[in-house]
């Protein structure tokens, strides 16, 4: 979401050349800059959670700003005790087409679950 800081108006129809945008100083000779900040993915560890969980994404100029933004967007209801942020482009993901070769082979291997011995009742999250 990009708005003009002075007028508060939305910048309609993001142009590829920043000089075309309303409010841009025309002919200022600035090199073209990225209008959109890069996307970061946010992971929170909640007070009761054991591990960081993906909670959403945000835009920020760099990692430090992303941490500030994550704090302001995703911990407003007293959720977190630790934040990770990572650039979305730095995440390598498995593709849906690989679903079967990746995951099918484990579907019949029940013996990998610890179902053959008693778990004490006070051990959560198994």
């Amino acid at each position: 979401m990009t708005k003009d800081a002075k007028t508060g108006q939305h910048l309609e129809g993001l142009a590829s050349d920043p000089a075309d945008l309303p409010g841009s100083p025309s002919g200022s000779g600035h090199a073209a800059v990225d209008i959109e900040w890069p996307l970061f993915e946010v992971f929170l560890r909640s007070k009761r959670g054991l591990n960081h969980v993906h909670v959403g994404s945000l835009h920020a100029a760099d990692a430090q700003m992303a941490l500030y933004h994550a704090r302001d967007l995703y911990t407003r209801r007293n959720e977190g005790v630790s934040i990770w942020v990572v650039r979305a482009t730095d995440i390598a993901a498995s593709s849906p087409e690989e679903k079967d070769p990746f995951f099918e082979s484990s579907s019949d291997k029940i013996y990998r679950h610890p179902t053959f011995y008693e778990i004490p009742t006070n051990v959560p999250h198994m």
């Binding site: 007070k47 009761r48 959670g49 959560p124 999250h125």
Partner: peptide
């Protein structure tokens, strides 16, 4: 780590946003 999630607390069913 079990202490962190095993606190005696009525609102333990909330994954997020407890302890106000």
């Amino acid at each position: 780590v079990y202490e962190s999630i095993g606190e005696d607390n009525d609102d333990r069913h909330w994954a997020f946003g407890t302890g106000f």
